[in-house]
Structures are given as structure tokens and as C-alpha cells.
Computed example of a mutant assay.
Amino acid sequence: MMDNQAQAGLYASVAQEAAAVVIRRYSTSFSLATRLLEKPVRRHVENIYALVRIADECVDGACAGSGSAPDAIRSCLDKLEQETLDAVAGCYSSNLVVHAFSITAREVGIGPELIRPFFASMRADLEQAGHTRDSFDAYVYGSAEVVGLMCVRAFLLGSPVDAGLLARLDGGARRLGAAFQKVNFLRDLSDDYQDLGRSYFPGITVGEFSDAQKDALLADIEADLAAAAAVIPELPAGSRTAVAAVHALFAELAKRLGAVPARELMSRRVRVPDVVKLRLVAAAWIGQQPAVSGTWRLRRVPLLAALHRSSR
């Protein structure tokens, strides 16, 4: 029979395996990109994403789909936040995903200053149908930018970094997270409004959405993507390629949204085909390899084969 320490180690392994399943099942794009992370970093990013995903399911997905009343949904989110804070403080959690996140949080330095804003934004979806400029900025910060900041702490684990570099990487992570969220809002404009009764972009009436408004939103997104791209070369080698791949995937989605008239966005959901995702991820990986190296020629075949299998 295992002693308590061995049981705790087994439970930690199982929790993190469960978190990895979440990312594979819920996000093709993100799952593809995380294959380019070094294994220790990948584990932490999977743990972060899994918590983000189940919080979102609590607000918009499985919780509501199971017939839970609004008060029950709010209670579910509140309990998840408190359980997360307790686990990060050093407690065991019977929720496998929360336990996995707490392992990462303690190892890389994620504290309540990043966790609370995330849950505040999730809670806003239960309370607000629209946003002012200030509430929109706060929502994007909590729902997306802090996730980028969490990931930066995972990327930097074990790497020496000075205050100036950390500030630049944090700034780039925030801009990239903001770009991701705004792209998602634009892609899901119709579904958010018609199915959930929400309109995220301040000053925009969804039923009167125009090409000029769409172009202005895309210009803002492109500025975020450009600011983030400028910082990617400063990331540690073990995470740089994956971030470049995710950046490329969302830049491609933004480009495709730009090619669709505003009126059509109200009746169709723009996506990046899997074959294009594969090409972009592969290009990001190859672009980070040495220009002349027999090693990468040997390595790229199994990696690209794995990416191809995952895209089927």
C-alpha cells in the first residue's frame, strides 16, 4: 500500500493528465500549438487552460445546458473561485482540474492578483449584457490578458529574467490575449447576441453592424497583434515557437474575418480550416529551427506527422 506522499504524487499526476484531456478535446488550435512547447512548460499551460475552460463551461456551457438555474450557475462559479484560491494556498482539491492548476500556480507564481480578475470577468457574463469602454477593458483584462500573464510565468520557469524583460513580456502577453479575445468576439458576434443576449463591443449595435465598424475593430486587433509579435523573439526558446504558432492562427482568423462583409458575419461563423491550421503551425515550427542543420531535418518528420494526425 502506498504511503500518503506517494498517493499525493499519483493524484497530482492523474490531475494533470485530466487537464491535458481538456485542452485536447476543447481546442484544436490551442492543442496543436502546445505540442510545440517543451514538456514541462506544456504541462503548466495545459493546467492553466483547463481551469479557464471549466470556468467558461460553468458560465455558458455545461452548467446551463444541464438545466441549472441562474442562481445555481452563479453559486457554481463562486465555489469554483474559492476552491481555486484555497487549492493555490496549499489545500488539496477533489476537483482534478483545480488541483492541477494549483500545482502550476504554486510552481510558477500565479496568485490571487491574477486569479480574482479572471473570475470577476467570468462573473460579468452573468450580470452584464453590454459594456462601456471601461467595463470592456476590465472584462478583456480579466478574461484574456491575465491568462497571458499566467502563461508568461510558466514560460519563464527556471529562466533568469530582469524586471525590464518581464515588463516587456507581460506587455506582449496582454496585447496578445486582448487580440485573441477581440477576434473571438468578432467571430462570435451573432451567436453571442442571438443566443446569449450579449454585445461585448462598446458603442456597437449588433443589428446595425457595419463594414466601417468591422474595419475599425480589425485595425485595433491588428495593432494588438503587431505589438505582441514584436516581443515574441524575447521569449525563452522552449515557448517561443508555440506562441508564434498561436499568433499566426489568430492573425489568419482576423484576416479571414476582414474578407467577410459585416452583414454576412451575422449569419455565418468564420473559421480557419484544419489543413490551414496545420500549415501555419508547421511553418511556425520550421521557422524557429536552425537554417542549416541535419538535426531538424531528422526531427521535423515525426513532429509534422504528429501534427497531421492530430488535425484529422
Score class of each variant (00 low, 15 high):
8 A>S: 11
6 A>R: 14
3 D>N: 15
155 F>M: 04
15 A>I: 04
259 A>R: 14
109 G>L: 13
271 R>D: 09
28 T>G: 07
117 P>F: 10
210 S>K: 00
232 I>K: 03
125 D>N: 02
108 V>D: 02
259 A>Y: 01
150 M>S: 14
271 R>L: 13
61 G>A: 07
259 A>D: 06
309 R>A: 13
112 P>E: 13
154 A>T: 10
73 I>R: 14
103 I>R: 11
134 D>T: 14
11 Y>W: 13
195 D>P: 00
258 G>H: 11
199 S>Y: 02
217 L>H: 07
75 S>L: 09
273 P>Y: 10
149 L>P: 01
167 A>C: 11
193 Y>E: 00
261 P>R: 04
229 A>N: 05
73 I>D: 08
287 G>A: 11
151 C>S: 15
124 A>T: 10
26 Y>G: 03
66 S>A: 15
99 H>G: 05
14 V>I: 15
90 G>I: 08
52 V>S: 06
104 T>V: 04
104 T>H: 02
218 L>W: 12
35 R>W: 10
1 M>T: 14
311 S>N: 11
141 Y>P: 03
286 I>S: 08
104 T>Q: 04
178 A>S: 12
213 Q>I: 05
301 V>F: 10
108 V>M: 06
238 G>K: 14
46 E>M: 07
301 V>W: 15
100 A>C: 03
303 L>Y: 14
184 N>T: 04
83 E>P: 00
61 G>R: 00
159 S>Q: 15
180 F>N: 02
94 S>L: 10
206 V>N: 01
44 H>C: 09
89 A>Q: 12
240 R>F: 01
133 R>Y: 02
210 S>F: 02
121 S>C: 02
178 A>K: 05
245 A>I: 07
122 M>N: 05
109 G>I: 08
147 V>G: 01
277 K>G: 05
37 L>Y: 05
3 D>H: 06
110 I>D: 06
171 G>I: 03
255 K>Y: 03
243 V>F: 07
94 S>Y: 07
238 G>N: 10
177 G>M: 00
306 A>C: 08
26 Y>H: 15
188 D>T: 00
278 L>A: 12
24 R>L: 05
100 A>M: 02
39 K>C: 03
54 I>S: 01
81 E>C: 15
